[in-house]
């Protein structure tokens, strides 16, 4: 059983990393989600596989002999919820980014780090860059 889970983790991480390295933004999000699923599986397997009975102590007994480890289940649940929220956020962000930048190619996204035109001088990160400064500070266009 543990070997099967190890194999699944291996395949999922491989696929996830492959997708994450893609230039297509949507595949990147999918890839991160897959690596997240693999991480959840690792966490689940960390609590030892074996008994599947819920860890509820029956009335009248002091201890539990044979039950699943409840702690990794709690951890996995937490990790799933956090991962879910982040993937949701990533999807919304990706959609807005594709819309604003009009491209879904990761290599074409150079708004934060513009490509230098000169091999020696770095590009200006200031969007309103002009060779000579005006007297007034640039005002951000509030949106």
């Amino acid at each position: 059983m543990i070997a099967t889970i190890a194999l699944v983790v291996f395949v999922t991480v491989t696929v996830g990393v492959y997708l994450t390295l893609s230039r297509d933004l949507f595949r990147v999000v999918l890839g991160v989600a897959m690596v997240g699923s693999a991480a959840n599986l690792v966490l689940f397997a960390a609590g030892r596989l074996g008994p599947t009975a819920p860890a509820v102590v029956p009335v009248g007994q002091a201890a539990l002999a044979d039950a699943a480890n409840p702690l990794p289940q709690a951890l996995v649940l937490t990790a799933i919820v956090i991962g879910f929220a982040l993937v949701c956020f990533a999807l919304v962000l990706m959609l807005r980014l594709i819309r604003d930048a009009r491209t879904d190619d990761a290599l074409a996204l150079r708004d934060a780090e513009p490509v230098p035109t000169d091999p020696v001088k770095p590009p200006a990160t200031d969007p309103a860059f002009e060779p000579i400064a005006g007297a007034e500070p640039r005002r951000e266009a509030a949106r």
Partner: peptide, 27 residues
Amino acid sequence: GALAGYALSLLEADLTPADDERPEPRR
């Protein structure tokens, strides 16, 4: 609240697809 926020903003983004806003085809 949180997920309705995400879902509604996704739907909102989806409802305004003007033709010129489509991503350009990749090279």
